[in-house]
């Protein structure tokens, strides 16, 4: 399945993405409704504010992939929702939204966490790394390349979380066997069942290419 959040492969500077299209279509919809309302002046309706100062929001500075983002968020916002909806880093996926599936896995100060279970405000001052921060299409992280080489996915929805967990696993105490890898990857669920290929990809990067029980 094509990732609905991934940009099209078209390299033109004005490439159209599904997300960009939907955002613009939504704004156009607001503008046309406003124009149809006689009591609303065109000057008031036309500009859509970039970052409206919504009552109840609070300022926060989050360091994500080495860049500090100064944003305003609802204090209840999870790190996951903030990454996706406010910072527009949509590589991190929302699966179950309560810490069971691992699709939202990111790194905080080098440790993997479920971003759906973190309040974004708890991470001011931390180093947050998302899938966008570990490699780009032109220069993939070895784990990303291994997932491609081993077909470590089918629909791809869990993939960024799987890769973030796998990259963290490289620095965690983990035995050499496939069973050891499976134990440490147990926080990431793949409903397509690409597990054998995911384990093979991780073992290749770790230098343990032995394929076992499967």
């Amino acid at each position: 399945m094509h990732d609905p959040d991934a940009p099209d492969s078209d390299e033109s500077p004005h490439r159209l993405t599904r997300r960009g299209f939907l955002t613009q279509a939504g704004m156009a919809g607001v503008a046309s409704v406003a124009a149809a309302m006689p009591l609303v002046g065109a000057a008031e309706a036309a500009p859509v504010p970039e970052a409206p100062d919504i009552p109840g929001t609070v300022p926060v500075a989050l360091r994500i992939n080495g860049t500090t983002h100064r944003i305003r968020i609802d204090p209840r916002a999870t790190l996951l929702d903030t990454l996706r909806e406010t910072v527009h880093l949509t590589g991190t996926k929302k699966g179950c939204d309560h810490g069971q599936c691992g699709a939202c896995t990111v790194h905080v100060n080098g440790q993997r966490v479920n971003s759906c279970l973190r309040l974004a405000l708890m991470h001011e001052g931390d180093d947050i790394t998302t899938i966008e921060g570990i490699g780009v299409p032109e220069a993939l992280h070895p784990m990303q390349a291994a997932f491609v080489a081993h077909d470590g996915y089918q629909c791809g929805y869990c993939t960024s979380g799987q890769i973030m967990s796998a990259v963290a696993l490289l620095k965690e105490p983990c035995g050499p066997s496939d069973a050891d890898v499976k134990e440490l990857m147990s926080g990431n669920i793949c409903r397509c069942g690409a597990y054998p290929n995911i384990v093979a990809a991780i073992q290749q990067v770790r230098g343990n290419t032995r394929v076992s029980e499967g």
Binding site: G99, G102, R112, V113, N114, A168, S186, G187
Partner: peptide, 8 residues
């Protein structure tokens, strides 16, 4: 849980 939970 998984490692992500154990870390926090």
């Amino acid at each position: 849980g998984g490692v992500q939970i154990q870390n926090r």
